[in-house]
């Protein structure tokens, strides 16, 4: 009866639009570069370069070893392992010791990704999982104040979120948002340069490699929750802009929360997913024991992702 054709499929050969796993990973790496190069390597120098190189190379090595052990086609070339190594390095302090980096990439690649069957199968963001495990095990190495003690730049080198936790709002008056945007703050190698991360995120969103819904909802979740806290007691809780531009918030919003296989695909689930992540981040920062809750919040939303995927549009023509 209904013979009208909805979708016309022609014969081969097809034109490839040039988008594939390799391209995606490559472009995400490009997007991360401004924050990494200008914010991290430029600021932290040789040690940071060492951490990044070690992280990327060992991540690829673990991937290769796991491919061999599991007798699967070698997938190092798709760039995903390199991306994971790069993002992990961006979250680490510049002076992270070699064994911390190698354990980190092992956890990320082997436990975070390959155990679940490689790319696309991971239930959690491998980078967030790895950083969370490292943070639980070696708390001291994620204390940016202690780790970056030898750097003496022309701006305040105390880690903003640690200052907030220890000294309250009166302690953070010395910081300014423009410093955060220009990367004049302490933190992970690639997590300090606000403008760079924003540019990278905007590029990825415009090219369609990540979904704007997740990033924007995440930032909105951070903003609204922090604002509510701030309104109830401005003397105890920092203002929302402070939370958005410090710690892992921006890198979390654009690079971690948006990871393909651990985030939802439909519009409403993406909004809930992002907003819940922002909410959890601020709850952990303001009430919880940890200084920065971003990676933990992202693990929590990864966990609710399968549930969120149940919210989906009704199939066409289906009668309930």
């Amino acid at each position: 009866m209904n013979s009208q054709k909805k979708l016309i499929v022609s014969h081969a050969p097809f034109l490839h639009i040039g988008s594939g796993i390799t391209e995606r990973n490559l472009h995400i790496i490009y997007a991360a570069l401004p924050a990494l190069l200008l914010g991290g390597l430029f600021r932290f120098g040789i040690p940071a370069i060492g951490v990044v190189c070690l992280s990327v190379s060992t991540a690829m090595l673990w991937e290769l070893l796991m491919n061999r052990a599991m007798k699967r086609p070698v997938s190092v070339g798709d760039g995903n392992a390199a991306l994971i190594g790069l993002l992990l390095a961006m979250l680490l302090p510049a002076t992270a010791p070699w064994w911390l980096v190698i354990t980190g990439t092992f956890v990320a690649i082997v436990i975070g990704k390959q155990i679940f069957g490689g790319i696309g199968g991971n239930a959690f963001n491998p980078v967030a999982l790895s950083v969370a495990i490292l943070m639980v095990s070696w708390k001291d190495y994620f204390d940016f104040n202690g780790m970056l003690m030898n750097y003496d730049p022309d701006f305040i080198m105390a880690y903003p979120l640690a200052t907030l936790k220890n000294f309250g709002v009166s302690g953070i008056e010395q910081y300014s948002i423009s410093d955060f945007l220009l990367g004049r703050q302490s933190g992970g190698i690639g997590a300090t340069f606000g403008i760079g991360l924003l540019l990278g995120g905007a590029y990825l969103i415009m090219r369609g490699f990540i979904r704007w819904e997740i990033s924007i909802a995440y930032l909105a979740g951070v903003f609204v929750t922090a604002l509510l806290f701030n309104l109830t007691d401005p003397t105890r809780y920092a203002d929302p802009f402070f939370h958005i531009f410090t710690g892992y918030t921006l890198i979390g919003a654009f690079f971690l929360a948006t990871e393909d296989s651990s985030s939802p695909v439909n519009f409403i689930p993406m909004l809930i997913y992002g907003a819940a992540g922002g909410l959890m981040t601020i709850l952990i920062r303001n009430i919880g024991a940890y200084i920065d809750g971003t990676v933990l919040a992202i693990l929590v939303i990864n966990l609710i992702n399968p549930l969120l995927d149940k919210i989906r549009p009704k199939a066409m023509g289906k009668v309930v």
């Binding site: 354990t103 495990i133 639980v136 095990s137």
Partner: peptide
């Protein structure tokens, strides 16, 4: 050696 405390958790 820096213990990988995650393992005993």
């Amino acid at each position: 050696f820096q213990p990988f405390t995650f393992m005993v958790e």
